[in-house]
Design a protein around this nucleic acid. Structure first.
Length: 578
DNA sequence: ATCTGTGGCGCG
DNA sequence: AAAGCGCGCCACAGAT
């Protein structure tokens, strides 16, 4: 059924609202929610299809007609819901509750399949019929008052019906494979991601370019220094310039060889270890060039011309552990250099709140192991690394009294999370292998429950064939991979449950915060694994900060009960030191 | 001209 | 072959 008037739209939407599950799909003039517009909203209850042509209709009228169906009522099934949610934002419509067939599939296939999550591919697998995407181009080129062709309407109908059918079959798998909690979590977090992308984050491009300009100058100086050394061993062109590509590792390695510096690789550590001024200059050049290339104009090119803000793309399930990833640009690897980070700022009269979990992954390890020393230290708000160092080294350690012992204990604790062995520890601390082995043994003697927990994680993965987080997010690992004696499987078995649980907690916090701040002119603008950035009116910043802290701690307590949660919040007008 | 894999390096 | 975990981006090198 195709409807173009508000009265019929409202009536038919109300009819559909009585069903438990209704699929929702949108057809739009393009793929950019900031510049393209909504043309058609399609619904299906698995039998009937309702196609709402919303072009030219008053926004408030459409909102009122569709709200009883979209906001509350049935579970809305969407494929890649984030996109449709963003497209529906100008109508003031929020979709809830929702289920996302793409995220569901990523959850179910994690570790088994790396691509093949399009609606068409799911349709092939679940329903045995691929969907033709060619027709979508038709919507993109459409004139504003042109009637939809039968082919376009058929395309819209098939898409939304397929989404409904896929979800129904998928739910059985979700149930069977213990994925209900994770599927629910991801669905709950979608609106937070949609909102975050739509809002974007503000950067001061003028100040940013000044930072890059300085880096450019430092890079030039480093190049000149390299020229002085390599002039002796490299070709010099007619203008007297050294004919060497400093961005080519092979060229640079060969040239260093001619200066008597023979390296396995040209990694920073080896270059510095050689101590040769040309190698040191190369490190300086690389650092400067990284800023200029990755964080220069190519980064700023993502400032949106309409909004003046950066609207990055977040992949909600971007990593096999369940972590989020981010691209175009990646807002999760901005250098910590405060000159650069402080370019992320709030508009006039507004504030930026920086909030991060304190020692999130160690708290998760404390939850998994129930280790009494870790639990007590977190409970009392003590310095865990100092506490651990005291236990391991048998002397009272504090940040002031024995900073080096504390650092070593910290390195071990974090190393364990990554599955580090004695060799890795030795390499990092500069100890001998024997010393590192003795230190690890001493650590595990003091913390037998952690030792047992890490071995348990490994054993469970071998038995089950998958690693999993506290919420039951799974990473399936191939038998071949588990049986190979490489150590890689053991490290993943230890790391995924910890890193992944951290991701679960942060996503839950985002869902809580999004809900808490709804309709308040305060919103998330970035997420970096265990850190969140929120923009809000300056006058409300202290209050919002307290609410953010509360919601983050509530999320952590919900996932790892029994461990004292702690989120640290700073209020300012730029992205403060994390 | 465009794609793919690799080294290197930014972040948590 | 192993590598302490997870990402994305830039530049190069080789292939299509």
């Amino acid at each position: 059924m195709l409807v173009r008037d508000l009265e019929t739209m409202a009536r038919e939407a109300a009819r559909l609202a009585r069903h438990p599950v209704v699929a929702l799909d949108t057809e739009t003039s393009g793929l950019d929610p900031l510049t393209d517009t909504l043309l058609l909203v399609a619904f299906s209850n698995g039998v009937d299809t309702l196609l709402c042509d919303v072009r030219g209709l008053p926004v408030e009228g459409v909102r009122a007609a569709l709200a009883p169906l979209v906001e509350g009522g049935p579970v809305k099934a969407l494929h890649h819901a984030k996109f449709d949610l963003r497209m529906l934002m100008p109508l003031g419509l929020e979709v809830r509750p929702l289920a996302d067939t793409m995220l569901n599939e990523q959850i179910l296939e994690n570790g088994r399949r790396e691509s093949g999550f399009s609606l068409s591919e799911l349709s092939s697998r679940y329903l045995g019929l691929p969907l033709d995407k060619a027709e979508r181009q038709g919507f993109i080129r459409m004139a504003p008052d042109e009637a939809f062709t039968p082919a376009q309407l058929e395309y819209a109908r098939r898409d939304v019906l397929a989404t409904w059918q896929i979800l129904v079959q998928q739910m059985a798998r979700v149930q069977r494979e213990g994925a209900r909690k994770v599927a629910r979590l991801e669905a709950l977090a979608v609106p937070a991601f949609a909102d975050m992308e739509q809002r974007g984050v503000l950067v001061d491009a003028v100040a940013w370019r000044e930072v890059i300009r300085r880096a450019q100058a430092e890079g030039d100086a480093a190049r000149a220094e390299m020229d002085r050394h390599f002039r002796k061993v490299a070709n010099v062109d007619l203008l007297g310039a050294v004919d060497l590509n400093y961005d080519s590792d092979v060229d640079v390695r060969d040239a260093l060889g001619k200066l008597g510096v023979h390296l396995q690789s040209t990694q920073k550590g080896e270059l510095l270890h050689s101590g040769h001024p040309a190698a040191v200059a190369l490190v300086a050049y690389r650092e400067a060039h990284k800023l200029v290339s990755t964080y220069g104009e190519s980064f700023l090119s993502h400032v949106h011309p309409r909004t003046g803000r950066i609207h990055a793309s977040f992949r909600q399930i971007g990593a096999s552990t369940g972590r989020v990833s981010c691209e175009r640009p990646n807002l999760q690897n901005v250098p910590k250099d405060s000159a650069l980070r402080s370019c992320f700022h709030a508009p006039p009269g507004r504030a930026l709140i920086t909030a991060d979990y304190a020692a999130c992954e160690l708290r998760i390890l404390a939850h998994l192991s129930r280790d009494p020393v870790f639990l007590a230290a977190f409970e009392r708000g003590e310095d865990v690394h100092a506490k651990v160092a005291s236990q391991v080294f048998g002397v009272p350690v504090s940040k002031q009294s024995h900073p080096e012992l504390r650092e070593r204990a910290k390195a071990i604790s974090f190393g364990l999370i990554y599955g580090m062995g004695a060799a890795g520890l030795a390499a990092q601390t500069g100890q001998s292998l024997d010393e590192a082995e003795a230190l690890l043994a001493q650590y595990f003697r003091q913390f037998p429950r952690i030792d047992a927990t890490l071995h348990d994680l490994e054993r469970q993965v071998r038995e089950r064939g998958y690693a999993q987080t506290v919420l039951g997010r799974r990473l399936y690992l191939e038998r071949d991979f588990l049986d190979r004696q490489s150590g890689a499987a053991a490290r993943l078995s230890r790391n995924m449950p910890i890193q992944g649980t951290s991701a679960d907690i942060t996503k839950l916090a985002m869902a809580f915060i999004h809900e808490r701040l709804r309709g308040r002119d305060a919103f998330l603008v970035n997420t970096v694994h265990d850190e969140l950035l929120i923009e809000c009116p300056a006058a409300e910043a202290e209050r919002v900060g307290a609410e953010v802290k509360q919601e983050m701690e509530r999320a952590m307590a919900a996932v790892v009960p029994g461990v004292s949660p702690l989120a640290e919040v700073r209020v300012g007008d730029t992205w403060a030191k994390g």
